Amino acid sequence: MPASIPPNKNSQTEAALPHAEDAAVDNGPLKRDLISGLEKGLQVIEAFDQERSKLTISEVAQRVGLTRAAARRYLITLAHLGYMRHEQKVFSLTPKVLRLGQSYLHSARLPRIVQPLLYKLAYALEEAASAGVLDHDELVCVAAVSAGRLVSATLQPGTRVPAFYTANGRVLLANLPQHQINAMLDRLHFEPVTVHTIVNKERLLLEIARTGAQGYAVVDQELELGLRTIAVPLRNFRGETVAAVNVSVHAARMPIVDIVERCLPALLKVQIELAALL
């Protein structure tokens, strides 16, 4: 009889790898698979925002949780790569950082699919329209059309706003598991953005529940005075919520009592059309 061939250990290892990779995806990555330098470098970029456009080495170190020496090395590296500008003792971001966001907008399928229908929606209603996705506790605009109506500076691709105070954000939150909504609210620092901002946890929960029940959200000047928005979720062919789309109007042009009647039918039409494409 021919001698039996022992199993190839390498083959067994390779066969087990897909299961290990699937487990890493399901349960989160293993620490050995993460590149801490890349993680910290991106955190250094994120340390700069609208309120803090210029930071010293010490301020970056404090915001990111680095030593001053480490923060200095990251900032010098980013400046060498063209992502950072150094003037006297402060650092600031350069326009090259926009490439990171543009890479998503140019490569992601969602903005390309949504944009043409946003044009139809905005010009049919003669109002601004935008689409957004959730990123943790924030709403990120991924596509927008103004239709000649300059309603708000926040309606631009790449802008980030608190999800709880926007119509797009609320329809997306309404489709999350309740425990996840509660966890996000527990992290939220309740601070009024305008006199209309809801800063009570119980009221926000009621608004999110109402949004889920009726299938759309209306937000009246909670993020910005004069800005009223109505939004619906965008679902793919499997019924999963992947984004939200809204219409934004100026309060002086449209009373809050008219926004549902005038804008919701057009939004629902876009919702149906996109469900077959997403």
Rank of each mutant, 00 (worst) to 15 (best):
A108L: 02
E202L: 12
L117A: 08
D186T: 14
A183F: 11
D49V: 15
Y119W: 05
T13R: 15
E191Y: 09
D33P: 08
Q102D: 11
P116E: 08
P95T: 04
Y83D: 01
P233H: 07
L42W: 08
L172D: 00
L204G: 05
A23C: 14
I76E: 11
L118W: 00
S92G: 10
V260I: 13
P29H: 04
S11D: 14
F48S: 02
R109P: 03
M184W: 03
V218M: 02
G65R: 01
S130G: 10
V257G: 12
L267C: 05
L278N: 05
V97I: 15
T197M: 03
V257Y: 11
Y74W: 02
R170S: 09
Q50E: 14
K89N: 15
D49F: 04
T94A: 03
A231Y: 04
L205M: 12
V60A: 03
R235V: 05
A251C: 14
G215T: 02
E51G: 08
R32S: 09
Y104P: 00
P255T: 06
V245P: 10
E240C: 07
L234P: 03
R99H: 13
Q156G: 06
A122S: 03
A23G: 01
A23E: 05
E222C: 02
E240G: 09
G41H: 00
R109K: 10
Y119K: 09
I198L: 15
A252E: 11
G28S: 01
L121D: 02
Q115Y: 14
A231W: 03
K54G: 11
G41N: 00
E273Q: 12
C263M: 13
L267V: 13
V64P: 13
E191F: 07
L110M: 01
V171I: 05
L98Q: 15
Q214H: 03
L81K: 09
V242I: 15
L78F: 04
P265V: 07
V90T: 08
L98I: 10
G37T: 10
V44G: 00
T166R: 12
V145G: 00
R85S: 10
Q221I: 09
A128K: 04
H250T: 10
P192N: 07
A15F: 12
R149W: 04
T241H: 05
G82P: 04
T159Y: 06
F48C: 02
T211K: 02
G212M: 10
T159I: 05
A16M: 13
L17C: 10
S152R: 03
A153I: 12
L227V: 11
N236Q: 13
H250Y: 07
I272N: 12
E202T: 09
T194E: 05
Q214R: 03
A24K: 07
V161Y: 01
A15M: 12
